[in-house]
Design a protein around this nucleic acid. Structure first.
Length: 488
RNA sequence: GCCCCGUUAGCUCAAUUGGCAGAGCAGCUGACUCUUAAUCAGCGGGUUUUAGGUUCGAGUCCUAAACGGGGCACCA
């Protein structure tokens, strides 16, 4: 902290001592029966009139503006439902309260009782009859609602960002709304919500580097989970036929506007379904979320718009590949040639890996969507059932919107012999820790006891949030995104 | 991990070609009983992120570090 900040803080500390000297506790106490500011503003406000007093109200909030006019003070306080002006007149309160009012700083929390009405200039106002001090703010707040320009400052002081940047609070509410909608939607269809461990002995279910940790008493190395998949599928074996979890997963990877090391996933599994079941479910789920936000089904995203009108477009991976890459994805020599044209070195890579790299480079960005891309190269999908008439192809789809993967789903592989083989199979060109094929003996054993044929779906909640709330960075849909620890 | 950009008062930002570090808001003192991004008079406030270097002279140029942003890589 600089000397200057200490000066401003010192002024506040001195005021705190003066408040104490008035016999007032600067840290406040229980203050019951307040009305949210938003509700007060909804009352009919009449001009102040001694003969016909307005309703008595009680509010608590944070002081965000302070204007003096001699023996008259105008304050504004804020709570999460809005802001309102207070008028403090010297002859309406006690001398001690008046002295207290002189000692207020922006950022302090106060409570008031008073009469609700309108000033001569038609501003909804509470004329203060009793002023209660609730909490001192010892640090200066940003100058006011027009500040908060520095991203790092906002992220490291999210509590201030919530107060002074309306969008931050709005997104927090929208996030809850979306997650609640998902729960309501799934619960209504008979899905059981469960919680599975975040500490795993084997970090499986996705291709990602895990965070490592250690349990002292067991002297065991453990991993933070990178996916929810494998525990949930064990529950399918256990007879929970419709199951889901909304939970945090952790991936030890780079940070970007679309990646935070911990993020929230929805995964769900339905016994006796398949990936087409999941497509219909995904559509309903996403439209329900769009509708829950209360707007139109055509929503803005940056410079673009997205229209979530079912049914969403459905396109085969192989056909999109042919259209945008210009060759048959099963034609090995043509694919290798196309790769070289794109600057992708095909040597030493498995055919399906090259195909996928071409798809990512040439096709994804063209997918405005929402579009279900389905039937993926099988070797990229070690947990997915192959098509019964085409073993090169896996019954999997991803939902794309503006090049972003919003959902990933497949018909679950329930054949333990094939599962064990794909776990053992090392995809050429991929180092071991980048493969999603991590041998999990216990999971194979579970499958050996019989997992029903099933469809499964995963949705990254944060990216869904970004898209539905027109937010360009994942940092602003997560209240506390990971930052490097502050330098001393 | 690599490349590019940024960091100046509590907050938001200026500072010409390398030539006295500034403004608004916030703060302090005072005036004002209907203000509202109040107004008026006055006053303080800086290790220009950090450490070196070049120079008569560095906010400005060079090197390195810290933190942040964007991109790449990683991430099906």
């Amino acid at each position: 902290m600089s000397d200057e900040a200490q000066d401003l803080a010192e002024v506040r500390a001195e005021k705190l001592r003066q408040i104490e000297a008035l016999g007032i506790d600067p840290w406040g106490h229980r203050f019951d029966n307040t009305t949210p500011i938003g509700s007060i503003r909804a009352l009919p406000g009449e001009a102040f009139n001694e003969a016909r007093p307005g309703p008595k109200v009680r509010v608590a909030g944070r002081l965000i503006r302070y204007r003096t006019a001699g023996k008259l003070l105008f304050l504004e306080i804020w709570d999460q439902t809005g802001r309102i002006q207070l008028m403090v007149r010297v002859n309406k309160i006690t001398p001690t309260e008046w002295q207290l009012a002189q000692l207020l700083d922006l950022g302090d929390l106060i409570g008031v009782d008073g009469e609700f009405g309108k000033t001569r200039t038609d501003e909804l106002t509470i004329q203060v009859e009793k002023l209660t001090f609730l909490t001192k703010s010892l640090e200066p707040h940003p100058k006011d609602v027009y500040g908060m320009g520095d991203i790092e400052y906002r992220l490291r002081h999210r509590y201030l960002d919530l107060i002074y940047t309306p969008d931050t609070l709005r997104r927090a509410h929208q996030r809850v709304k979306i997650i609640r909608t998902i729960r309501t939607h799934l619960d209504a269809q008979g899905y059981l919500e469960v919680e599975t461990p975040t500490l795993h002995a084997i970090a499986g279910g996705a291709a990602a580097r895990p965070f490592e940790t250690h349990h002292n008493a067991l002297d065991a190395n453990l991993f933070m989970r990178i996916a929810l998949e494998l525990p949930l599928k064990r529950l399918l074996v256990g007879g929970i036929e419709k199951v889901y979890e909304i939970g945090r997963v952790f991936r030890n990877e780079g940070i970007s506007p679309r990646h935070n090391p911990e993020f929230t996933m929805l995964e769900l599994y339905q016994a006796y379904g398949d990936y087409h079941t999941m497509m219909d479910l995904t559509e309903g789920l996403i439209v329900a979320c769009v509708d829950a936000l209360g707007g139109d089904r055509t929503i803005p995203f940056g410079e673009k718009t997205v229209t979530f009108t079912p049914p969403f477009q459905r396109a085969k991976y192989a056909e999109l590949f042919r259209e945008h890459v210009g060759c048959d994805m099963y034609d090995e020599s043509a694919v290798r040639a196309a790769a070289r044209v794109e600057g992708i070195e095909p040597d030493g890579k498995a055919h399906d890996v090259i195909v996928q790299e071409l798809f990512e480079d040439l096709v994804e960005e063209k997918l405005v969507g929402p579009v279900f891309v389905y039937d993926y190269p099988a070797s990229l999908c070690p947990l997915t059932k192959r098509k019964r008439d085409d073993l090169r192809t896996a019954e999997r789809f991803e939902l794309y919107v503006h090049g972003m993967e919003l959902a990933n789903a497949y018909t679950e592989l329930n054949d333990p012999v094939t599962q064990e083989q794909t776990f053992r199979q090392q995809l050429a060109g991929l180092p071991a820790d980048e493969s999603m094929a991590k041998m999990d003996e216990d999971f194979v054993r579970a499958l050996r006891h019989g997992m029903p044929p099933a469809g499964g779906l995963g949705i990254g909640i944060d990216r869904l949030m970004m898209l539905l709330t027109n937010t360009q960075t994942i940092r602003d849909v997560i209240l506390f995104p990971l930052l490097r620890p502050e330098a001393k």
